[in-house]
Design a protein around this nucleic acid. Structure first.
Lengths: 315, 315
DNA sequence: TCAATAGTGTCTGTCAGACACTATCGA
DNA sequence: TCGATAGTGTCTGACAGACACTATTGA
């Protein structure tokens, strides 16, 4: 059914207060009378790299990375921003996000999800801009296979999130709880280090709660993009337990330790290996393969696992 | 910090490839060159009424209600739609949603949350319209106190959701799972009954999952609003366990049975009273009061409880 | 006494967290 | 043999789901 048309016979000839049928009304409708905000999408692209340490007995650390581009024009010229751009008149929001993804990394067919829409009046110093933010999760290998990776001014930054301070203030009929979060974005090769601050605030009055994500300090990050990155990190952490999105960040085969490391980064807490192992296998999120880790390290070789595509949250 | 301005001295005098400083650039920036989609918000207002049955020994049933307005103009003239409208150039999205809420119900200071943004090219037969959907939860008493309630063409409809069919089709490397959902919206007084169909589809290929909510049949509901209502119902169900949003739908004091009935409606499943009671009290979401149910019914009077504003998901 | 709901007590199997222990590999 | 990680086994307390039972009220 094409629901985009009114397409009911009975409505076709109905007239409004000015005596117009739908056809006449639409033909006469002048939308240009109204001033409109501009519409953009911003794409948060995450991936995971291995970060080799000094001691090669140790297993390499995992780093969560986000793609930033250097702005070539005002506003915020020379600063780093999320890739994004205007939405064309003939593409949907999702299509615009996938186009941006493709332009920036030359990757297609990856996990993509709408995050949130940001519409404060003065978000952009040029004019009123509404941005719809999207998040994509890409595995490293897919990036290597395709070109456009380290093209020009798009660079991967390590993301780290620290909670600097949590406050909880009781009010008459509820509380105000705030979390001051520091986002640290680093790129070793360029010796770039950005650390922005975002405040998450829950204002509860009775049962009426209001959640806000406020930008406190955007040091080197354009617009309110620090807020969007934080929003994406929250989203991954929320979905990690009941969806398989995390496997989008890993290669086809992986060890349980690697998977655990990723969980620890995203949830920002330590997990006991024995329990993690037991739970993953029991849940059925993961299937044992017959292969083993290739790398010769000073310890027993780990069995490789892969995501179980039959896995289902319901069961 | 006012992050909406570039406000770093070093950037102020930096020039772009055309030799413009930021100030010059912004003054020369002509946004009117670009065609832009229109921007609206749609507000999903939920509340709960008691629905008296025939047997007055029985406790009244609860009904989840949504506010719909009858369209007075094309397109979809005469059909029911969510309240909503264009976003002004000087109001944020949240402000626009609160304005709409106030205009429609004269209620302020209630729970409001952004749901999702819908941006398909042909959503609206007039022109390209992006809509950002919001959901508000309002308790019945707040509505009674304020005017504007049953004004003109805004009416409360009972919402019921039935899963007509679930299918799961295995593919090479994943599955396609679909749920066909029927939304039934009824208003007894007007003898109106709308039943729209929405399909929720999860397409999983490897770990790349894609979620879509598709409108199958909009029978009497304007635009893609059935989809938005369904999205709101999903959101409440997801948040009911770990947030106190449900208390926004209840009066200050309530019995545990009333609370349970609401849980059952929203989660669409039966709960054992003994366990429900135990869990609510243990969790500390709820505080005992000294009052009892006034109503004289053929059974022991129930103690009234109220929401515990100290309750905190973390603990 | 009955219908209807309020509210208590308890049993049972499952499971998360903690931790002790064994296995394997390379230097 | 040591350092490092892989992987197994098991104890414990908490807890969800099921259900039997008592309490209170109005007709």
């Amino acid at each position: 059914m094409d629901w985009t048309k009114t397409n009911l016979e009975e409505l076709k000839f109905k007239v409004n207060s000015k005596g117009q049928t739908e056809e006449v009304f639409i033909a006469a409708y002048d939308q240009s009378k109204f001033e409109k905000p501009s519409l953009t999408i911003d794409a948060l692209l995450f991936t995971v790299f291995d970060e080799e340490g000094d001691n090669d007995l140790k297993v390499p650390e995992k780093e969560l990375k986000v793609l930033l581009v250097k702005r070539k024009d005002h506003p915020f010229i020379g600063q780093w921003a999320l890739p994004g751009g205007f939405v064309g008149m003939n593409e949907s929001l999702d299509e615009a996000a996938r186009r941006e993804l493709k332009e920036e990394t030359n990757v297609e067919g990856v996990y993509l999800e709408q995050l949130y829409s940001w519409g404060e009046v003065n978000r952009d110093p040029r004019m009123r801009v509404l941005t719809v933010s999207y998040m994509a999760l890409i595995n490293r290998l897919k990036l290597n296979l395709q070109a456009g990776d380290d093209a020009e001014d798009a660079q991967w930054f390590s993301v780290r999130r620290t909670v600097l301070e949590t406050t909880k203030e009781k009010t008459d009929n509820g509380y105000i709880k705030a979390k001051l979060i520091e986002l640290t974005l680093t790129n070793k090769r360029l010796s770039e280090k950005i650390s922005a601050k975002v405040k998450e605030e829950i204002n509860l009055e009775g049962a009426v709660s209001q959640f806000r994500m406020e930008l406190i300090d955007r040091k080197g990050l354009a617009f309110d993009h620090a807020r969007i990155i934080n929003c994406g990190l929250d989203r991954i952490a929320n979905k990690i337990e009941y969806t398989p999105i995390i496997f989008n960040l890993l290669p086809e085969q992986f060890t349980l330790s690697e998977l655990q490391k990723l969980y620890e980064i995203i949830l920002n807490k330590q997990i006991l290996p024995a329990n993690f192992r037991r739970e993953m296998i029991k849940q059925g999120k993961v299937i044992e393969t017959n292969s083993f880790q290739l790398r010769n390290a000073g310890h027993r070789r780990a069995k490789l696992y892969r995501y179980n595509p039959e896995w289902d949250a319901e069961s």
